[in-house]
Every structure is written in C-alpha cells, then in structure tokens.
Amino acid sequence: MTNSIAEVKKPILSIKDLSIAYDKHYAVKNVSVEIKKNTVTAIMGPSGCGKSTLLRALNRMHELYENITTEGEALLNGQNIYDISPIKLRRHMGMVFQRPNPFPTMSIYDNVIAGYKLNGIRTKKKERDEIVERSLRDVALWDEVKDSLYKKGTFLSGGQQQRLCIARALAFSPEVILMDEPTSALDPIATSKVEDLLVKLKENYTIVLVTHNMSQAARISDYSLFMYLGELVEYGKTKNMFTNPIDPRTEEYLTGKFG
C-alpha cells in the first residue's frame, strides 16, 4: 500500500474500518481507503468478494436490505455519511447500475431531469432545458437524441440507455459517481464509448467503478482496489498494481489464476 502515500491529491471520500454484514455474515471486512478527487478508482476482485456491497455502502443503498449491520465510517469531504440523511447523501453521490434502467414511463428529457421531478424540486423551464442539454452533452448523447427528447428513453439502444442513465446521475452535479459494472451488459462498441466518457468525466467528477474486467480497470482507472473475500487486499495506482503487485493474491488474480 505504499505507492499511494506519495500522492498529494486530497481525498474526497475516506473510508475507515468499514465492515458490512448481511445477517452476521461479513461481506466487507475492515476496509480503509481514501478515494481521491477527480480520479477514476476501480474496485476489482472475483465475484462475491464484496465489491457491490462496498460500493452501495457509499451512498447507503445497502440499507435497502434487511438485517444489515454497518460498522466503521465513511467521510464525504470530511463529513460522516452516516450522519447525513440518505436522501441528501444520494444527491451528492450519483449511481449507475449494471443494467441500464431508464424509467420506462418517462421521455428522454424527463429521465434526465427525473431527480428534480421525482423529488419535487421546482426549477424554471429554461433551467431544466439547460440541465438536460448539459447532462446529455456530458455523456455525448446530445447530438444523437436532441431531435427526439420527448420520445421514451426505452426506445434507445442499450449503450445509449446506459449513457442516458449516466446523464440522469449527472443532472444533480453530484461530487462522486458510483458505478457497478456499468458496461457488463453492453456490446464492445458501446463499452468503449462509455469508457471514453468516464475518462472525460473525471475532469469534473470523481468516479468509483466496480468492474470485473481487468483490462477495463487497466485502461481507464487511476487507482485500483483489489478485494478478496471481503477484505481490501491491495490499493494503489493502477499502473503500479498491474506492473508490480505487492500481494501474492493480487498477482494471482491479475494473472488469471482465479476469478
């Protein structure tokens, strides 16, 4: 874990001794890590190692499950996220899911602005138009859909739908965007579009990306976490981890011995 210390970028998220259990079965064990601002951080590891659980703990979506226990803390800009209401927290931490999930009853426009509409946040029409255009431009979807903004979002292709979902998360200008294997349901071309997008988005946002695709992590992430059986095995600059892993388990995973 030494190779991260030299880095001076300030952390936006500090996770301290975070443990999460379902029914006393620990899925995340004592994870401590600092996520730096304006970076892409990849969470890697074999399936079932607790990647999604850790990610969902960051915007408290894991609380949807019953019998969950959470120990430790996570600070967003120095404030413990368990002291903020989940509703407020989630407006600062956008989330993108494995499968594109636009609201089927809503138009493309309404999907982008859904966070405002569903929360009953009043905005002027001009302001909404601006938010929609900016968010769709951010995900490079504006030119493709600007003439069909009032069509249902579900008419788009899978890749376009996923970018629409990213736009929906961006509409609130969140500080952090959490993504759980956002390209695993997409074809290679759509995947590479989303990857390009993430690299661009980190100029303005901080991205935490769960992926079980190692080459994806290598291509687009600045930092990587490697998890195994709920533990954080290794954390550091992606370049260093891929060329010179410290822990033997990381090396085994990266060389394809398990996963």
Binding site: I87, P104, A114, L118, A169
Partner: peptide, 23 residues
C-alpha cells in the same frame, strides 16, 4: 416491476413514498 427501477429512483435521493407513488 423490476427491482432496478426502484433502485434507480432511490439512488436519485427520492424518498421512499415518492418512489412508490411517482415511479
């Protein structure tokens, strides 16, 4: 209705009762 839709709304910080009524 797929669970993912509910999650999409909750992740936008929409309170639970509004997720049910509006989504």
């Amino acid at each position: 209705i797929p669970q993912t839709l509910k999650e999409a709304a909750l992740a936008l910080g929409v309170p639970y009762h509004k997720v049910i009524l509006r989504v």
